[in-house]
């Protein structure tokens, strides 16, 4: 295959990334956001792996011939991006682990993992705080006025 279709891995990688990005932005469920983040990162892995491939290349390993001599039988795919992406996979697993740990804690303290419900609870907390401070302010005012009255 040639042309734009011939590099279909790259189309798939972009597609995967965009699905992931959409999920991260549009889904209110935190678990779904974590899954989408994983998908987003998986797209990048595919990109790195595709980058290493060359036409007719095979895995870069030593071949042992019958007489015991070792030699390379080229051409080989570039192993460097593969190694890099192994590291990136570990990183992505760690990110997912931290994200899930946070989501468990959020579920424990908020009782939900829906982002919009959490946001509403935070807003309610803020309003309650504000009203409390208004009440305290009013009490202070009253106190000061009474004191002034007393002195007068």
């Amino acid at each position: 295959m040639t042309g734009a279709l011939g590099i279909y891995n790259y189309w798939i990688y972009v597609l995967l990334m965009m699905i992931g990005l959409y999920g991260v932005i549009a889904k209110p469920n935190l678990i779904k956001q974590a899954i989408a983040l994983g998908l987003f990162q998986t797209g990048i892995f595919l990109y790195y792996i595709s980058m290493a491939v060359i036409d007719g290349g095979t895995a870069p390993v030593w071949t042992t011939i019958l007489d015991g001599a070792q030699k390379f039988e080229g051409p080989y795919d570039n192993p460097l991006p593969h190694v890099l992406i192994l590291t990136a996979i570990v990183v992505s697993v760690s990110v997912l682990a931290v994200a899930l740990a946070l989501i468990i804690n959020i579920k424990r303290t908020y009782g939900t993992i829906e982002y919009d419900e959490i946001e509403a609870m935070d807003q309610a907390d803020k309003r309650a705080d504000y009203q409390r401070s208004q009440v305290v302010d009013a009490a202070d005012d009253l106190e000061q006025r009474l004191e002034g009255h007393h002195h007068a």
Partner: peptide, 10 residues
Amino acid sequence: ALTASLRYLI
């Protein structure tokens, strides 16, 4: 702090 951290994580 939890939601702040998760938002920063994402």
